[in-house]
């Protein structure tokens, strides 16, 4: 029996000073190598599910397990360690470190996951080349377009070959061409590395590339 890449069991979360839970008793399993699309209207709790899966938020009830490890039971330092070693996260607007070049941004993720510096830089450069932004490696996020920054964010999320990829509207702020490059890279990671992927999206193209989709409404998974 294989261990699920991600499992949420009866996971709930409420933001402070909000009565209704953003996520309400969600059950969700993503197997290794599986691509799952999380769809639903704005405000339904998609990003909150991803933040719970990443261990950035801790569920107020239920549990979250990644690769068989119950991350919701770990302290903040251990959750951080688990996140940098076994997960990659892509946000809608990239969330690159503005003070680092694109190459440094990607290499940093590799180094944080335990890859040696020289190797991390080599792998980072390779990733950037593959995503078509190798010549921009020494530019800063503020000096490239939104699409190029997003490609860099994908490179950063996949550089350490994570077991779980979490993506929040990765193509939501880029054009179709950039979107295709981004999705191809995410697919490559799934196919070559066996990465599991949970992707929150509104984009039908993204949904069509996934193995299955889950619909979230008012914080709950719809049947």
């Amino acid at each position: 029996m294989t261990v699920a890449a991600l499992e949420l069991a009866q996971a709930s979360y409420s933001y402070p000073r909000q009565e209704a839970p953003a996520v309400d008793r969600v059950d969700l399993v993503v197997e290794p190598g599986e691509r799952v699309a999380l769809v639903g209207p704005s405000g339904c709790g998609k990003s909150t599910v991803l933040l719970l899966a990443a261990g950035i938020l801790v569920p107020s009830a239920g549990l979250v397990a990644v690769g068989g490890v119950t991350v919701s039971g770990l302290d903040a330092a251990k959750r951080s360690r688990h996140r940098r070693e076994s997960m990659g996260v892509v946000f809608q607007f990239g969330e690159l470190v503005a003070e680092l070049t694109l190459l440094d941004n990607v290499a940093l993720a590799g180094e944080l996951s335990g890859i040696r510096r020289r190797q991390a830089r080599a792998v980072a450069r390779e990733s950037l080349d593959r995503l078509g932004i190798g010549e921009l490696a020494n530019r800063y996020p503020g000096q490239v377009s939104g699409g190029q920054a997003q490609r860099c964010a994908v490179a950063r999320a996949t550089v350490h070959r994570p077991a779980l990829l979490l993506a929040d509207e990765p193509t939501g702020a880029v054009d179709r061409a950039n979107g295709t490059v981004i999705l191809d890279e995410l697919d490559r990671s799934v196919l070559e590395v066996g990465t599991a992927m949970l992707i929150a999206t509104h984009d039908p193209d993204v949904v069509s590339r996934c193995d299955r989709q889950l619909v979230l409404r008012d914080g709950r998974i719809s049947p």
């Binding site: 360690r81 996140r83 940098r84 997960m87 470190v97 993720a109």
Partner: peptide, 10 residues
């Protein structure tokens, strides 16, 4: 925020 999301500890 980006560094914390990357997995850097507090």
């Amino acid at each position: 925020q980006a560094l914390l999301h990357l997995g850097m500890s507090r």
